[in-house]
Amino acid sequence: KYTPEEIEKLKELRIKHGNDWATIGAALGRSASSVKDRCR
């Protein structure tokens, strides 16, 4: 489950890194597949 803060951070990282899920996941301390599924 993602907190509202994590979702905000995810949005920012998505703008910065696009679909680089590995980088976004690492920044959030989550797996690449987890953040990818969250963005769907």
Rank of each mutant, 00 (worst) to 15 (best):
K1S: 12
K1Q: 15
K1G: 09
K1R: 04
K1A: 08
K1I: 13
Y2E: 03
Y2Q: 13
Y2F: 15
Y2N: 07
Y2G: 10
Y2S: 03
Y2L: 06
Y2I: 08
Y2T: 09
Y2D: 08
Y2R: 04
T3C: 01
T3R: 06
T3H: 06
T3F: 08
T3P: 07
T3Q: 07
P4V: 13
P4W: 10
P4T: 14
P4S: 14
P4C: 13
P4M: 14
P4F: 12
P4A: 14
E5D: 12
E5A: 12
E5T: 11
E5F: 06
E5Y: 06
E6L: 03
E6A: 06
E6C: 00
E6S: 02
E6F: 00
E6N: 02
E6K: 00
E6I: 01
E6T: 04
I7M: 11
I7T: 07
I7R: 07
I7N: 08
I7K: 08
I7C: 00
I7H: 06
I7F: 01
E8I: 06
E8A: 14
E8R: 09
E8Y: 01
E8H: 11
K9I: 01
K9P: 01
K9H: 13
K9G: 04
K9Q: 12
K9V: 03
K9R: 12
K9W: 00
K9N: 09
K9F: 03
K9S: 13
L10Q: 02
K11W: 04
K11P: 04
K11N: 09
K11D: 09
K11H: 10
K11C: 07
K11G: 10
E12L: 13
E12R: 12
E12V: 10
E12W: 09
E12P: 02
L13A: 04
L13P: 00
R14H: 13
R14N: 12
R14Q: 15
R14E: 05
R14A: 10
R14C: 07
I15T: 14
I15C: 14
I15Q: 14
I15Y: 05
I15V: 14
I15W: 07
K16F: 04
K16V: 11
K16H: 09
K16N: 11
K16Q: 13
H17C: 01
H17W: 09
H17A: 01
H17Q: 01
H17T: 01
H17S: 04
H17K: 02
G18A: 09
G18V: 03
G18H: 05
G18D: 11
G18M: 08
G18F: 03
N19K: 07
N19Y: 02
N19E: 15
N19L: 04
D20T: 01
D20N: 08
D20W: 06
D20G: 02
D20S: 02
D20L: 00
D20K: 01
W21Q: 06
W21F: 10
W21G: 07
W21L: 03
W21H: 07
W21Y: 12
W21A: 09
A22W: 05
A22D: 04
A22S: 10
A22T: 09
A22H: 11
A22K: 12
T23R: 13
T23H: 06
T23Q: 12
T23N: 05
T23D: 04
T23V: 14
T23S: 13
I24V: 06
I24L: 08
I24S: 04
I24A: 06
I24F: 01
I24H: 04
I24Y: 01
I24Q: 08
I24E: 07
G25M: 01
G25N: 02
G25Q: 04
G25E: 04
G25L: 01
G25W: 01
G25D: 05
G25P: 02
G25V: 00
A26T: 09
A26L: 10
A26D: 09
A26V: 08
A26Y: 04
A26R: 13
A27M: 04
A27F: 05
A27H: 10
A27S: 08
A27R: 09
L28Q: 06
L28W: 00
L28S: 04
L28I: 10
L28C: 05
L28P: 06
L28A: 05
L28E: 02
L28M: 14
G29D: 02
G29P: 03
G29T: 03
G29K: 06
G29M: 01
G29H: 08
G29E: 09
R30M: 10
R30K: 14
R30I: 08
R30S: 07
R30N: 03
R30G: 07
S31L: 03
S31A: 07
S31H: 05
S31Y: 00
S31Q: 05
A32I: 08
A32D: 03
A32V: 11
A32E: 14
A32Y: 01
S33V: 13
S33G: 10
S33Y: 05
S33F: 06
S33A: 14
S33C: 13
S34Y: 07
S34C: 12
S34E: 15
S34M: 05
V35G: 02
V35D: 07
V35Y: 00
V35K: 00
V35T: 03
V35W: 00
V35A: 05
V35F: 00
K36F: 05
K36P: 04
K36R: 14
K36G: 08
K36H: 12
K36Q: 14
K36D: 08
D37R: 15
D37W: 04
D37V: 09
D37L: 11
D37M: 13
D37K: 15
R38A: 15
R38S: 13
R38C: 14
R38N: 13
R38Y: 13
R38K: 13
C39R: 00
C39F: 09
C39A: 12
C39E: 08
C39K: 01
R40T: 15
R40L: 15
